[in-house]
Amino acid sequence: MAKAKKLRIRKHAVVLNRSRGGDTGIGIMLFLLGAFMFLPMVYAISQSLKPLDELWKFPPNFIVHNPTVKNYTDLFRLMNTSWVPFSRYLFNTVLISVSGTFGNLILSSMAAYALSKIKFPGRGWMFQMIVLSLMFSATAASIANFITMSLLHWVDTLWAVIVPAWGSTLGLYLMKQFMESSVSDAVLESARLDGSSEFNTFIRIAMPMVKPAWLTLIVYSFQGLWNSGASIYIYSEELKTFNYAISQILSGGIVRAGAGAASTVVMMIVPVVVFVITQSNIIETMSASGMKD
């Protein structure tokens, strides 16, 4: 008992109960895990910069010795000679990502506002169903969805990919939780008393207050759609996505090893850059993500 609380002051904060041994142990763990996460990424980038003789060298180099951008130029050459022009795949991916995200943003924010800020009969079970849906991955519903798509005559059209994305629930869930915790009822109430219509209150007052949440929704939806590969509803080659085309290059084997490595790097740049820009907003939104039971 004589040894009282350990209190240490670090650069930015006073911390309690922190032993040096614990700090070191955690530091080592973090370093090892970080290496496990980071090295494959480094290897991917290094691989994409290797000239042909280094790609097929024994023993292989982890880090490229004579970096070249030839793999990237090869990749673009491959894209230009493919049967369906690559710009078409890219167009499909951009179209799916943008329209899917836009629709999801509009529908989700409307629903999130109603569910979190208007007390109407039915909102309880509606939200409960949305929470329940978070527990199931979409594959489990894919069989029955195929029937829906054929009834709607949407098989082999991009609608089959875009419209279901509008009803994705994770973004709605995050936005609803965030609205609940950061938009005060008093502000909305006074706007209503001033004669602002419910719709106006939603657009003019609530939405500007939840900017981090809609940024998060955009990032999530965009990432999911950007990475979407072959869909079971799409057969036509000219309706397939960029990611699908990349995976075709990847499976091209030896000849295309360099271009394949370059293509994975190209695919990862967009989501990573988007996350770097929006990270603080996403973390802010996530602070409201908790699920109260």
């Binding site: 494959p40 990424m41 490595a261 989501p271 996350f275």
Partner: peptide, 17 residues
């Protein structure tokens, strides 16, 4: 550090490495 740990989950097909 968050970026280092989170990046693999959003980088699509990069796991083929």
């Amino acid at each position: 550090v968050t970026l280092v740990f989170y990046a693999p989950s959003i980088s699509g097909a990069v796991y083929t490495i």
